[in-house]
Amino acid sequence: MSAPAVRPLLDRRPWTFYALTALFVFYVLALYGPMLCIYLLSFQDLRGGLVFPMKGLSVHWFVDLFTQVRTGDVKGSFDRSIKLAVLVTVITVAVSFLAGMAFRRRFRGDTVVFYLMIGSLVAPGLVLGIGIGLLFQFFHLEPSWFTSALGAQLSLTLPFGVLVMFAVMSRFDRRWEEAARDLGASSWQITRMVVIPILLPGIVAVALFGFTLSYDEFARTLQTSGSLNTLPVEIWTMTLNVTSPSLYALGTVTTIVSFIIIGLCLGSIAQMQKRRALHKASH
């Protein structure tokens, strides 16, 4: 008989595969579609409005964004947001790393610390903002982006950072540390030459969370940034009074910054993982 063999049952995709593929495609389109729309619309010319169709093609609104006074202090807030995000990232990485090390074994009171952290993560941002504002008022301190807003943002980024650290640490084999000690490394050498390099991809992931969460943080920053705005707060005021595509242009610019950061982080993680990947096939 030369009839083709019946395809094995396992190779046939069930109908749910196609239904779920459709759902997935729809989800991804809904995720990225709206963003793509405003990127497109931000490149309109002078006649442009907030909706399609596109009117012309230019970078007018980008120029407008950084030159017009009526759109607010975009450049200044952009500057502050980047500085703040870098500051938050550095602190988040260092503190999350240490906390992650502590949580590798149980210690007296660890549950309290854990739930405080979860509380800090899920607390309503505005309520925290009010509390921090009142606290500063009580101590006669002037709220500013690099004190109260920094703390408010850390109360969000640190729990996230520690949670990511948990995931990373759970894949860290204690024997690496023990082996290093056995081979004569001091505690500091173990940390510097073994623990940090092995955990580096995870540490980069923590940095990614720290930077992007800070850079886009709004609810906790609104009440705590003092007299000088960060970029998301600036965008928020713009949504209330700006009805030109310069709003979209700002969206495009901030998203480009985000994408650069995401790309750098994910790219370097992928590089490191690829280097360490198992090449079982080669032997």
């Binding site: 690496w176 000690r181 056995d182 081979l183 360490r276």
Partner: peptide, 18 residues
Amino acid sequence: PTQRRTAMMFQSYALFPH
């Protein structure tokens, strides 16, 4: 361990992956 001048070979070796 170093002062003892012993060295250990760990189960599944614990080679540093990086």
